[in-house]
Computed example of a mutant assay.
Amino acid sequence: MIIKENQLDIDEINTEDVLAVEDNNMQYKDAIFFDLEHYVYKKPKCVGVFGCCYYDEVKDKLIVTQYMIENREEGKDILLMAENYFKVMQEKYNKKYIVTFSGNNDFSVINYLFNQNGVKYNILENFKHIDLQREYEKVIKRGVGLKALEKIFDIEREGELIAGSNLAKTFHKVMKDSEYFSRMPKEKVEKILQYNEQDVVNLFHIYVKWNKYINKLREQIELENSILESEKLSETEIDNNSEATI
């Protein structure tokens, strides 16, 4: 099992920019930010990478934790480590919220695997879910993907993007061949971990800069709609004048 922990510096947080949920814009202090890389074929097979981070107010840093399996036998181990992580976050650090981007799929996968492996833990019974995709759609009334949302928030990723299908193929091979991981280039392992780390870290950055970019986007959309409405009115006036001339 690869266990990786990292502490990242963050920019100063302007509380006026932070997403307010239930009329509270300080919930980022009580939240964990969560993403999985997994393998599903007809039904969930494994969690390949577990990634989470939280804001440490004392250190003023993001604390990132990742677990990555190296073989089939670690399929249950990573679930037990995930369960322990959630319990520690709740009981020791008093975390109450879990932030994702379209996280229902990840919850379905991990809860299914918990059940299959006798792990009696349900994330959504212990944390209140804040889904940034859903929060975006409430305001903008349009769908959006995480990478597109990152662009809206001027977030530039380091390294290359990895398709979910490629990650699934990798963990399928890890589950099938006990020696596959040892043959994987170290650079590939690091790319996968970096990709997952940026997923969870970027959730935090989007959360605490929410109003700054969402308000700007809302104004842009309102302007576009206003222009379209003006164009429609102009077209109607031209049509009416044409009819009057005839």
Rank of each mutant, 00 (worst) to 15 (best):
246 I>Q: 08
178 S>D: 12
163 A>W: 01
234 S>T: 08
21 V>E: 07
81 M>T: 01
189 V>Y: 01
99 V>D: 00
114 F>L: 04
181 F>S: 03
106 D>F: 04
146 L>H: 06
24 N>D: 15
17 D>E: 12
105 N>S: 13
110 I>H: 12
66 Q>V: 01
93 Y>R: 14
214 I>P: 00
20 A>H: 04
100 T>S: 12
226 S>D: 14
141 K>Y: 09
225 N>W: 06
116 Q>F: 02
124 L>W: 02
106 D>W: 03
179 E>N: 10
204 F>L: 07
74 E>L: 01
211 N>G: 02
206 I>L: 10
102 S>Q: 13
49 V>A: 03
61 K>C: 08
94 N>I: 05
188 K>P: 00
84 N>Q: 15
222 E>K: 10
164 G>V: 11
24 N>S: 08
218 R>W: 03
113 L>C: 05
209 K>P: 00
191 K>G: 03
201 V>P: 00
238 I>N: 13
207 Y>A: 04
142 R>N: 14
69 I>L: 15
130 I>P: 00
142 R>A: 15
154 D>C: 10
63 I>K: 07
117 N>D: 05
199 D>T: 02
5 E>W: 02
62 L>H: 07
190 E>C: 00
93 Y>V: 14
189 V>K: 09
29 K>G: 04
67 Y>D: 01
227 I>Y: 05
23 D>L: 13
207 Y>I: 05
230 S>D: 12
88 V>M: 10
201 V>E: 01
111 N>V: 04
11 D>E: 14
185 P>C: 10
5 E>L: 03
134 R>C: 11
161 L>M: 11
201 V>D: 00
164 G>M: 11
109 V>A: 10
44 P>S: 13
118 G>V: 13
31 A>W: 04
149 L>V: 13
145 G>C: 11
126 N>L: 11
32 I>P: 01
204 F>H: 03
184 M>F: 05
